[in-house]
Write a protein that binds this DNA or RNA. Structure first.
Length: 423
RNA sequence: GCGGGUAUAGUGUAGUGGUCAACAUGUCUGGUUGUGGCCCAGAAGAUCGUGGGUUCAAAUCCCACUACUCGCCCCA
């Protein structure tokens, strides 16, 4: 019989890696709370229509059929969330958070599902730390979200990251740019690869993303979106840049930065780490002032970022940053099988009740003390509490420190304070 | 969806036609009667991914499948 194994693109996070995860999540949560964000969790499953209307059928999630969608009869199609923002905005509307005094600052952490071909840094299930500010158009809100991401990376020890910034305009000005870009590309149709010709038809902005040969030189002379922004978008972008400059934050204006989700307006950005392989994007985000309306709610501006946790783990490993070690248990209780087991187990829970991290050396039958001592060494404990028959008869246990100090006989009544103080 | 690579004990590897498949590490047990780390000794653990083919003989050659992995596309 063949053994059942992990599904393609799925990952088990083993105890060693959990150390990284705990560090990342703890850092992210404390930063978010410090910045005034509140946690809100939303379901992993949502109505498919949420993503149809929110993320848009022009997105790769739909075009490349990347979503895990389950059809449950005629009226019911449900989808494993491929991103966080749509669900959070849905919950914001549904629970009436739009009546809260804006801005509403939310964060969440959880799994995201996309049916792609897995490779280094790309999984079909990955986790994101996601941050959103709803109800606010101020570019300072954009800055908050960006710096939360950047400062998270900094606190985790990252030094060299590239911060890519662009504006994608709004429904007023974006179409003008799309027309200009289309005209430009149409004039150079002979230089376009088949893939890009197809993109030109479906979603001209996508051509900017092209990695086809020769496109770099051609696109260098293509029209820039920043020249086509309407007054509002241009002001917003200028103010955003001014704020970033005033904070001494460096960033690269990348007019070819296009995001795969339809809802973005104005600000778009990504942070890249070249050390983790081909999948360099550590996080991506932007402004989505039309999303709430698109999914049937009141017009609500918003800005947010999705931060990939697995890629941070990859980055920390690439930088050879060791994961913080788990604190070892203070004491291991050794005993000699059934004769002393009851006393050993009672002692175990008495120690735990006082908050001491104690472990029991399991022993069916009479397990040698040597092997229990070896176990203690492997677990890295400071003390071995030896529950022996003769001592027990006198209400005593032996406590052996593993750092070379001498072994002591301690009364059962005093063992807690002994372990707490070390004598 | 399209390409490349890989598949041998828990883990990491060696082994390119020929006795009971090797090494490291990990695990377990011992090294005098109830005391760790180092060291020493021993043990357990692999139908060599699956199925087929070639051959007297296959982990080794061929084919298919599957899985994993890396890359393209795109993204976190």
């Amino acid at each position: 019989m063949s053994t059942i194994q992990r599904l393609t693109g799925m990952q088990d996070v083993l105890p060693d890696d959990q150390r990284y995860w705990q560090l990342i999540v703890a850092t992210a949560v404390s930063l978010a709370e410090q910045y005034g964000f509140q946690r809100m969790d939303v379901p992993i499953l949502e109505a498919t229509n949420l993503f149809v209307r929110g993320v848009g059928t022009g997105s790769d999630f739909f075009v490349q059929k990347e979503m895990y969608t389950l059809d449950e009869g005629e009226d019911s199609s449900i989808t494993l969330r491929p991103e966080f923002t749509a669900g959070l905005v849905r919950a914001y509307i549904e629970n009436g958070l739009s009546s809260w005094s804006p801005p509403v600052k939310l964060y969440t952490i959880g799994p995201i599902f996309r049916r792609e071909r897995p490779q280094a840094g790309r999984l079909r299930q990955h986790s994101q730390f996601d941050v959103e500010i709803l109800g606010e158009t101020d570019p300072a809100a954009d800055v908050e979200v960006m710096l939360l991401a950047m400062n998270l990376y900094r606190q985790l020890g990252y030094k060299e990251l590239t911060f890519q910034l662009n504006s994608t305009g709004c429904p007023q000005c974006k179409p003008l740019y799309v027309t200009a870009l289309t005209d430009f590309l149409a004039a150079h149709l002979d230089k376009l690869a088949p893939v890009d010709k197809e993109r030109l038809q479906k979603n001209p902005l996508r051509v900017l993303d092209s990695k086809e040969r020769g496109m770099d030189t051609l696109l260098a002379s293509a029209p820039h979106i920043l020249d086509y922004l309407c007054a509002d978008c241009a002001d917003h972008f200028a103010e955003l840049r001014g704020l970033l400059d005033s904070l001494g934050e460096s960033y690269t204006i990348n007019f070819r930065l296009v995001r795969g989700i339809d809802y973005y307006t104005k600000t778009v950005f990504e942070v890249w780490d070249k050390a983790i392989g081909a999948q360099a994007a550590l996080c991506g985000g932007g402004r989505y002032d039309g999303l709430a309306e698109a999914i049937g709610g009141p017009s609500t501006p918003g800005v947010g970022v999705g931060i990939g946790i697995e890629r941070i783990v990859l980055g920390l490993k690439a930088q050879e940053q060791p994961a913080p070690a788990a604190p070892p248990p203070l004491a291991l209780i050794a005993h000699f099988g059934s004769a002393t087991k009851t006393a050993a187990v009672q002692l175990l829970f008495r120690l735990r009740a006082t908050g001491l991290p104690a472990q029991l050396a399991f022993a069916r039958g009479r397990r040698s003390l040597k092997s229990q001592m070896r176990e203690a060494d492997k677990r890295g404990v400071q003390y071995v509490v030896i529950v022996g028959e003769s001592e027990l008869a006198n209400g005593l246990v032996a406590v052996r420190p593993l750092d070379g100090r001498e072994q002591a006989l301690v009364a059962l009544d005093e063992i807690v304070t002994w372990l707490q103080t070390g004598y």
